[in-house]
Computed example of a mutant assay.
Amino acid sequence: MSQDGGVIDLEVSVGYLLKQASAALRIAMEDVLRPLGMTVTRYSCLELLAQRPGLSNSALARGAFVTRQSMNVLLQALQKEGLVTRPAQPSVGKVLPVQLTASGHAALREASEAVRAVEVRMLGGLSAGDQTRMLDALRSVVRSLGTPDEPPLADRNDEETSSTS
């Protein structure tokens, strides 16, 4: 996949194709989440909390690819709607661990089904082997582009939750 004379050929640019795939996935997810009163960021936050209860605002922001300020606004809204709870005071340090409520779990179940249908559609043209190779390749890309002094997101979240327990 050579790029001639410093000009990137978009037809063979892996980065450009990844960005196209990311945009197409986001649009498809927004389309199925909108009728449920959700956005991709809201869904991502709820999904992260279901899989890693007690995450902090900072860890949620990193996991949902938004700023801490944006995540704080979202968490306040989710708390007002009764989908998450946060203690008024931190038990240790400054971290206010967030938990899903029963209503939050119910909203997430419906959203997860919709998002899973998008993912099934996205992968429909790939064999099981191709899907495995794609996952391996994407994980390799993430590892290669990560900064050496910063662990991958999953490791950072695990460290944060274990240090706040």
Rank of each mutant, 00 (worst) to 15 (best):
K80H: 05
A106L: 02
M122V: 11
E159D: 03
L55V: 14
Q76K: 08
A88W: 14
S165W: 05
L126K: 13
G6F: 07
V98C: 10
M29E: 10
Q3N: 03
S91V: 03
V40K: 03
S165N: 12
K94I: 04
L138I: 09
D31F: 00
L36I: 12
N72L: 09
V12P: 11
T164N: 06
E47Q: 11
S2D: 07
R34W: 04
Q89E: 06
T39C: 11
T41W: 02
V84P: 04
V84M: 07
A154Y: 07
L18E: 15
Q51R: 09
V14H: 01
R68F: 06
G129W: 10
T164E: 07
D155N: 04
S70D: 09
G54R: 14
R133P: 10
G15Q: 03
K19M: 06
G129Q: 15
E110L: 15
S91D: 06
M122A: 13
M38Q: 02
P35T: 01
R68H: 04
E47P: 00
N72G: 09
S22T: 14
V84Q: 01
A77S: 05
L78G: 13
L100G: 03
Q69D: 10
G5W: 11
P87D: 05
Q131W: 12
A28L: 03
L78Y: 06
L75P: 08
F65K: 13
R62E: 13
T164S: 10
G104V: 07
V141I: 11
R121T: 04
G37Y: 02
L17F: 13
R156V: 14
Y43P: 07
V118W: 15
L10N: 13
E150H: 11
S163F: 00
G63N: 03
L55E: 15
E119N: 08
R68I: 08
D155I: 14
A106D: 11
K94G: 01
E159L: 12
N72D: 08
M38I: 02
T132D: 06
Q79N: 06
L33H: 09
M38Y: 06
E159Q: 04
A102N: 09
A137V: 14
A59I: 15
G104S: 01
I27V: 14
Q79H: 03
G104I: 00
